[in-house]
């Protein structure tokens, strides 16, 4: 399963990464599981587990941790929005 993952604003600075394409293990089937798996990379990636204010989107719509992942999904992680 190929996923495109995007990181925005303070998150991409913390991670030193704004986008990546990954193929997670087969047991990663939900957005919440993906987030925990990415946090498990350690170092700066632990921010994904530590910051409880982070938002998630799946295919450009805000999504919950129990959202199922599909091949080709675009996933985004970002801080609360501050436009306007």
């Amino acid at each position: 399963m190929k996923l495109r993952i995007l990181y925005f604003a303070s998150l991409h600075e913390t991670l030193g990464c704004d986008a990546e394409t990954i193929d997670p293990p087969p047991n990663i089937t939900t957005l919440g599981a993906l987030r925990q798996w990415l946090a498990g990379r350690g170092g700066p990636w632990q921010v994904l587990a530590e910051r409880d204010d982070l938002r998630m989107a799946r295919n450009q719509k805000v999504a919950r941790p129990d959202s199922r992942l599909d091949d080709g999904d675009e996933i985004a992680f970002f801080p609360p929005v501050t436009g306007g």
Partner: peptide
């Protein structure tokens, strides 16, 4: 709604060269 739902993020730059992301209110 724009302030809470539209995915924009603001970073402030100061005269001394420092910069920081704005926190949600």
């Amino acid at each position: 709604m724009l302030k809470t739902r539209a995915p924009f993020w603001k970073k402030e730059h100061c005269a001394d060269g420092s910069a920081q992301w704005v926190a949600a209110r």
